[in-house]
Nucleic acid binder design. Sequence first.
DNA 1: CGCGTTCTTTGCTCTTCCGCAACCTTGGAG
DNA 2: CTCCAAGGTTGCGGAAGAGCAAAGAACGCG
Lengths: 231, 231
Amino acid sequence: MARLDESLLTGLPPFSRLERSQIRAILDQATSRRYDEGTAVFREGMPAERFYLLLDGTIRVVRTTETGEQVIALHIPPGQLFGIAPAIGRDSYPASAICAAECLALSWPVRLWSGFSAAYDGFATESYKTLGGRLGEFQARVTDLATKAVEQRVASALLRMVNQSGRKVEGGIEIAFPITRANISEMTGTTLHTVSRLLSAWEKQGIVRSTRKHITVTEPHQLVLLSGAAG
Amino acid sequence: MARLDESLLTGLPPFSRLERSQIRAILDQATSRRYDEGTAVFREGMPAERFYLLLDGTIRVVRTTETGEQVIALHIPPGQLFGIAPAIGRDSYPASAICAAECLALSWPVRLWSGFSAAYDGFATESYKTLGGRLGEFQARVTDLATKAVEQRVASALLRMVNQSGRKVEGGIEIAFPITRANISEMTGTTLHTVSRLLSAWEKQGIVRSTRKHITVTEPHQLVLLSGAAG
DNA sequence: CGCGTTCTTTGCTCTTCCGCAACCTTGGAG
DNA sequence: CTCCAAGGTTGCGGAAGAGCAAAGAACGCG
């Protein structure tokens, strides 16, 4: 395998305070791998043997209920750690990590986690910040699901994805990974039918534009209004 | 203030691996305080200046939406840390902590957090486990809200409270803190009317018994069935 | 002991959104 | 080029549950 370049990690929060030589040491212990769209990096319930850093692509964190329904808990953008069960004392993954697009990720065996935390200044702190951010996001999700109507939730979900992984294109901002109506319904606790109806209506009003598996938001401000001003 | 006894902390996860003398040192830096039912220990958005350990009572973790609705994120039972924003790199509290019943809590200034983590074996690990548990609980909440019907969610919520803070009484298990129909609706994303109707129906079927602000579950198994077998 | 506040119950109406069904479109595989 | 699977659209009931209204308990305070 090609030797990995230090610049991959430079500037990413968990490694931002480290020397070049330290980053080198970390990289030399990493395994790098490419995953096709739709592949599972790991699945819910599997023993947590490695933790990961997403270099490119988008990870969809998914839980499946006993009745077989899927719920999308989270999308992870490039540059973030994922599968960090060891950080919270779990020995199995609480959800599955599916590649929403082609992905490139590094990984390390979990036994290195405590060593990294101890040896590298800022690694633990920054990782826990990531965790804190996710906790906050979940809290926001719960609040949304508990208080907002479907239309507002779908608008919020679109905005969240646009903010986190939006790519500027002519006439708007496009969500940078493939996403279906069904996916959105799994994020918002509704049905693909309702999502389709909403998107059709918004398209007629000129708020969004969409093709198969891709959505571009042309009037973010209108969506903010529809979302009940929370994001 | 009366000197606190070491036995208060012995056996609680964050302190379980510590020597008596270490616990003594921790206690000597703690402030102990009693709070009346309904009091806020801290409020959403306030600068996070202290972290807390609940010795007795129950804390209700509440978020308020822009439209003034309340959502109950979590109940915290005695023996757990709360207000641990510093652990996840936040400098303000993300939610309010309200006493569901009369409470007794210890607290420390946040600046001691990193010292505790460094000096006391297991403190950080165990605290992050608590955090992990909460993350898991949120994930379960999101799944519930996204996929289950109202009746199932209310049944789940009752079961969760019974499991976490149930007190055995004759003919069933009582939720150990005062709780109203409105509270339950804020936990499950419904209205107090619907909750009242459900409880009435269940009371007729002999599954629960309730008086003002108190609920006893007499047939937990029936509730498990109603909840769609998830808890 | 009376009064007001807080909590609870229950009926009715009305809206939202789900479930079902049918059909259309797009893109990839062979 | 054709076919097929995956994704998307749209119409139409029907049911779940929200919203509104009104009244009845329980408790706590003066």
